[in-house]
Design a protein around this nucleic acid. Sequence first.
DNA 1: CTAAACTCTCACGTGAACGGCAATGTTGAG
DNA 2: CTCAACATTGCCGTTCACGTGAGAGTTTAG
Lengths: 155, 155
Amino acid sequence: MTEMKEAAAAGRLMRIQEAAADVGLTPRSVRYYEEMGLLRPAARSEGDYRLYDETDLERLRFIKGLRDDAGFSLAEIAQLLEDEAARERGHAAFHATTDPAERRRILCERVASFERQIQTLQRKIDRLQAMVDDTEARRVRTVAKLADTGISEPC
Amino acid sequence: MTEMKEAAAAGRLMRIQEAAADVGLTPRSVRYYEEMGLLRPAARSEGDYRLYDETDLERLRFIKGLRDDAGFSLAEIAQLLEDEAARERGHAAFHATTDPAERRRILCERVASFERQIQTLQRKIDRLQAMVDDTEARRVRTVAKLADTGISEPC
DNA sequence: CTAAACTCTCACGTGAACGGCAATGTTGAG
DNA sequence: CTCAACATTGCCGTTCACGTGAGAGTTTAG
């Protein structure tokens, strides 16, 4: 039992099946997302196997979230990931310099990127909330009619 | 100028193009939704033209909202409309009886239906909100790193 | 070293949600 | 009544987001 339970937290690289299963996708979908330019595996094995690391998994979870929860198309997700990519490039650039001014600029860009992402999601939430409010108003009107029936008992 | 500006509020019936344009859909989509069982036009002309009334338009707007804003599939929308249909049947049944107990039962069912719909939408909002919270947390961490750079000026 | 299990890259197939065209019929203004 | 404008059904085409092999190569336990 000296074998590792799983390719857990550390800097382990996983192949496509394990990676896909981990985030709840199929290998085919993961390859398709790559084809669409949504991600590239951290590395390739000698035999050209795709190898994913933890940041890849986070990215895949992010994609899945946008697809399932928000109903974004892959094209829209690509837009959001453009920002994400810029942040990662910024991360490298951040560690490549020691100039405080430069570091500050990189971090500021990241913050702005996060804010754009939040706004995109928030707009969707707002529209959904409007639908909820609308339905709620109709519910309230119906409850009012219920009171009109004379019987004021709950359902 | 005695002609009506548009087939405005009243009990006017509109043909498919006007109806579709009014809610921002194409005639083709409207026919497809009918084919999928999402709605049936209020009436047909003598020559079998589809004729839509105001409640049809509301229904179409509801469908469009679920599709565009919530990203629901037509199958999921069909589920939600099952409830909507039940409400409309309830509306007829409501006016068909004068029994207060029966009327109360119908209204209670409508309220429950609205509440189910709200919950479905709310679950989606919650998941989106979780993504926003996540992104917000990352933003905050980045802002903290910004403070660490020594310069405490805003961006 | 072998064999099973996994992976690679094409490449074609599929279901959802329409777009678009054809052949035909209906409406309504003039 | 006529004729342009709109409608009908039917059917094939398309895009998106994958599913599903085929055929060949790679990894790794034993």
